[in-house]
Amino acid sequence: MEKIVACQTCGLVQQADDVPKGSVIKCARCHFQIFHRRVDSRVRTMAFSLAALIFYIPANLYPIVTAEYQGHHIQTTIFQGISSLFTLHQYFIGSLMFFTSMLTPGLKIIGLMFITLTLDWPHWKKARTWVFKIIRIIDPWNMLEVFLLAICVSMVELGEVATVHPGRGVFSFAAVVVLTLLATLSFDSRLLWDSPTERKL
């Protein structure tokens, strides 16, 4: 069946044939891929959020930094950092840290996994929409953790008296940040409201 499609990249309207499975349509002018819904959106989101979920565990259990300050040997995980901020009565920064680096990545990963896993199920459509709304709300806050990391690193660099080794936690945390970013990027929100027949296109 022939249909008329518009290229998302250069805007050229063109006609396209049905393509066999495993093949893709490419624009006649700019040769970019033309898609009805973002390419492999569901599989990509699932894969990225699963990888992020796996990294979320060592990111929280392993120390972010191992600092050696005048012979004192201090290892700090994210949670220890937050709780020490609270004991120092830095409630605002402590809760900011908690929300941006522990709560929001976790919520986002679980939310994306929930949506992609239950997508074929006709029920819970409303729940999926709600979860998507929450993800949309916490998304900008999620970006904050990147800045927070940058601030942490600069603070560490300032203290030249201390020798600081990045722990495994910070590597895992960076992986969580990148993978959740990729998962959100590859998620096509239109999938939420597509009927099963529409999704086949």
Binding site: Q15, D17, S23, I25, I34, D40, V43, A47, A175
Partner: peptide
């Protein structure tokens, strides 16, 4: 209207290597 080309798709199962590597 111009005719869109048909190209070869990539293997999306390769994506699952990312969580496996993780």
């Amino acid at each position: 209207l111009p005719k869109a080309q048909v190209g070869k798709g990539h293997l999306n199962w390769l994506l699952w290597l990312i969580p496996i590597a993780a």
